[in-house]
Design a protein around this nucleic acid. Structure first.
Lengths: 178, 178
DNA sequence: CTTGGCATGTAAACTGTTACATGATTCT
DNA sequence: AGAATCATGTAACAGTTTACATGCCAAG
């Protein structure tokens, strides 16, 4: 289960509660490993039971106590071991591409419409990545160093979104002039 | 369930047995919607029960009869309806990127090694896409026309794999000179 | 006074993967 | 002799999504 290892990696960078972690995931690992808070809480429990994490309860008034997780030697070992395993290649699951695949069932206007909205969606994502990248590039050096690999994964996201932009534009041009 | 609609789309292009379809999926929709034969057979059954497909048994000696599925008006209607729904954006799930995210736990040699093997894997995929694209571009015009949208989705795959190549190379250069 | 954020979870439903099963044919 | 291809499936398991549950606080 990669999510568990993703969590170990995140916690290794910085301890936090389930809530913290799900927020942080949304702006980092979530880009290439989407996950909901339900999954995250469950995975944290399991890691705790396996003895890979420590918890400290942080009492709060008027809301549930925060359970701050931190990684311990056993967790770090587990993560190390997993890091050395080979990765199986990416799996993309994109319903939009299934739709394009079936585009012979659309008329031209509809196709252009779909391409435009697809492009728009990916532009939003690209914009978000770019803003985050600019933001990270202005962090102080130590933090920037600590998160350098996160920054690299973000860069891949940017390249991939740029590929989408190019593709959507080319197709729109192709079918607009027809 | 997108797989069902993917199957409807594929069958709409050309009827075939579960086996045929899983072969064809491997070289088309499988690029952005991976699926195993078990899922495919199951989905075909369900579509049949829902009355979206017709079957014709093709008896064979010495091996199970082929069950040739073809789309019917109801199936086409279901597909049409689904095509008009908006797509939710792509979900990438890539364990390799989780590993890179945790790369502070690798030494330089290990990182370079992993980047190289990641690049290699994606190069394989890129090569496969490129060969298939060249092949498709030499099809006779009618077939090329029928599969033009499949060809477009392939092009996106090529762009995305090129993005991976660029990224892997840049990172290798960055960490090699350090 | 409603929306969104904080903070944690349970449960059911759905989807996807892995292992197993059968059995002939062709290629190496 | 062993592996790959053809051809279809079942069953168990793993993973993911969606819905539900609670309850306070702050901002508009």
């Amino acid at each position: 289960m990669s999510l568990k290892h993703a969590l170990l990696g995140l916690i290794d960078l910085e301890s936090g509660s389930g809530y913290d972690l799900s927020q942080r995931i949304r702006n980092s690992i979530g880009f290439f490993w989407p996950s909901t808070h339900q999954q995250i809480y469950k995975a944290l429990h399991e890691l705790l039971v396996e003895g890979c994490l420590d918890v400290e309860e942080e009492p709060q008034q008027h809301r549930p106590d925060r359970r701050i997780y931190s990684i311990n030697p056993r967790g770090r070992e587990k993560l190390q071991k997993w890091l050395d395993e080979p990765s199986q290649p990416t799996k993309i699951r994109d319903a939009f591409l299934i739709r394009v695949f079936c585009a012979h069932l659309w008329d031209q206007a509809h196709l252009l419409n779909q391409l435009q909205s697809g492009q728009h969606q990916h532009q939003q994502v690209l914009g978000r990545y770019q803003r985050l990248a600019e933001h990270m590039d202005q962090w102080p050096e130590d933090r920037r160093n600590r998160y350098q690999y996160a920054r690299h994964t973000l860069q891949l996201g940017i390249y991939i979104e740029e590929a989408w932009q190019r593709w959507c534009l080319e197709l729109q041009e192709l079918y607009a002039q027809k």
